[in-house]
Write a protein that binds this DNA or RNA. Structure first.
Lengths: 348, 348
DNA sequence: CTGTTAGCGCCTTCAG
DNA sequence: CTGAAGGCGCTAACAG
């Protein structure tokens, strides 16, 4: 492994000169620069990241904490991992994936060892212990998914309230008068997850403001319970002509259940999912609101990078603990282009 | 940020003693050890990864190169990213995600800078330029997906030939006499991708050996072409009673097409996908052969770690360029438990 | 415009 | 059983 010294020798200059050629932080004569560049190329020299990091106290690495439930895998996590990595690279950072089941352990290690300069926390729950830990460490952190607003950490999220409201309004605008909304699952609502609570809020106020008959139903984590509820929803009279769905975990099962009930989509029942993964149509070109994964990833990396500015070197900034609220980015929902909501049949 | 020196001072010992307590590479008296441990806890000391790496030339980081097609996302990539991260942690390594579109650039950077000790390359294509680059660098590398066998790099893969053969045999054993096999897409076969070629081989020899009438069809990357072919397959006479599918990219679309043709699954047509993601049923509990993601991830990390043994420090081992073939792991396929293949209806 | 030097934090010989 | 010292590779302050 060639070092900066080898390069210097070969180019007949001092090591620091090589360093300056690399960093450009000093004027270097054209001749010297070329000699150095040549030596670098010939030796295949690459600066050692560890030496740079030791000296500069910056690793140029971001940690992404992926929440894990043992034995479970959520497609959205993998998707975000890739997109956040892209976003990080576009800001000059590499991405370290933290998939520990026990969320704080790995983060502590990575933060404490200086392996990463900042962290992105995915799918934050209310009262997430990782938030407190990161704040305590004074480690620059941004949240993917709105946490407790008191967390005072920067966050980015889709505006779930607006998303559900938009889906319902568009459905009503397509002419539907009897609309069912399938919210998040009981346990998510009980845990007061942000998207769950806000989605419900969006549905409730749209129900009041729109002229349509909007019925709100909770989903369930139990497949059998969910199936039963879906049957009830579909069997209600007057029958809904449209189904707006926030609980996507088993969307394909839900569609199968709809088919079993003898209903065709979208002729008999318009189905409008909210928060799908981009381009993941589950086999159908449904009118939908997609989770803006790329946009969220870019935004959260930007917030994480900015969070570093406040906490340089020892990342323990006594400076700006909270000049007001932390920065955040609430992303406005959009109907995915291409698909439109089929109006209800005139006569039942 | 506390250093080893601070700890030493607080514990009233020399810095080296602290180091020895940490590494355990020397006998330390119980009293001293406890004093040191206490100081460590009180100061919240964490060794700096960069300093360790600089000294030891080991970063304890693995790089995972995820292949990218701009603007496309394959669910399997995210899934492997998470599982490889888990596997890496279980071996004491952190995982760095490399998602550069231009595969070799990022790898060169990470290898050259010593950011990672070894690399795992996902979804290798024949003639993958990354393979040559890694070999040239002498960088310890393992492949996820069998590359060119001449690549002389360790690899792990599902035995696709056996997988397709198994799916077809089981389907025949369930009583099906007219079976259609939907292979990989034209372009994958033309590119001689390992899984595509080997899947075809498995289908061909099973077609010869089994008593059933097995027709092999290629899929297509073009949705319209694919739809047309599927219609042809389903419309052939005598009509197939079972469809074994290796081309999973649009499995939901395919199922929708089957439904459009008026065929119920599995009563009219048994569908048996090969190489699905674990627990990703696309809404159906189909009999299937899953891609053993966890097992493959564990195996590939083990191979990457072993590859390091041959190439310590400067990772340019003149030693074992190829003592025979590189180590590898060809994983035997298994039918996923729980679902059985529905026999064909007796009379058409 | 370029060279010399000290030190980032850690580990590991070597000396006591 | 413990301490002192050097160096991993790089950069930035300090000379020239």
């Amino acid at each position: 492994m060639a070092t900066i010294k080898d390069v210097a020798e070969r180019a007949g200059v001092a090591p620091s000169t090589v360093s300056y050629v690399l960093s450009g932080s000093r004027k270097i004569s054209e001749a010297t620069r070329r000699a150095v560049q040549a030596a670098i190329a010939e030796l295949g020299y690459h600066p050692r990241a560890s030496a740079r990091t030791l000296r500069s106290a910056r690793s140029d690495v971001l940690a992404l904490a992926v929440p894990r439930v043992p034995g479970e895998y959520r497609a959205v996590d993998g998707r975000f991992a890739i997109d956040v990595s892209d976003a990080a690279r576009s800001h000059g950072y590499d991405l370290l994936l933290m998939t520990d089941v026990d969320g704080v352990g790995g983060l502590r290690r990575v933060a404490g060892s200086g392996l990463a300069d900042a962290a992105v926390l995915m799918a934050v729950e209310e009262q997430d212990p990782r938030i407190g830990a990161m704040r305590e460490l004074g480690f620059p952190t941004a949240l993917l998914g709105r946490g407790d607003d008191d967390s005072a950490l920067p966050w980015v999220d889709l505006d779930w309230e607006a998303a559900v409201a938009l889906a319902l309004r568009e459905t009503a605008a397509a002419g539907h008068r009897h609309i069912a909304f399938l919210a998040s699952a009981d346990h998510e609502i009980a845990a007061r997850r942000g998207y769950a609570v806000r989605g419900l809020d969006g549905a409730r106020h749209t129900a009041r403001e729109s002229g349509a008959d909007i019925r709100v139903h909770h989903a369930s984590g139990d497949p059998d319970v969910l199936r039963r509820r879906v049957r009830e929803v579909l069997g209600a009279r007057p029958a809904p002509t449209a189904l707006v769905v926030q609980h996507l975990h088993r969307l394909p099962h839900l569609l199968a259940e709809v088919a079993t009930a003898g209903l065709r989509v979208p002729e008999d029942l318009a189905v409008v999912p909210v928060g799908t993964l981009p381009d993941d149509l589950g086999g159908r070109l449904l009118p939908r609101i997609e989770l803006p994964v790329a946009e969220m990833s870019l935004a959260v990396v930007e917030l994480a990078v900015k969070a570093m500015a406040g906490a340089p070197s020892g990342h323990r900034s006594q400076n700006h603990p909270a000049p007001g609220l932390p920065p955040h980015r609430l992303i406005a929902p959009q109907m995915a282009p291409g698909a439109t909501i089929t109006p209800p049949k005139r006569h039942l």
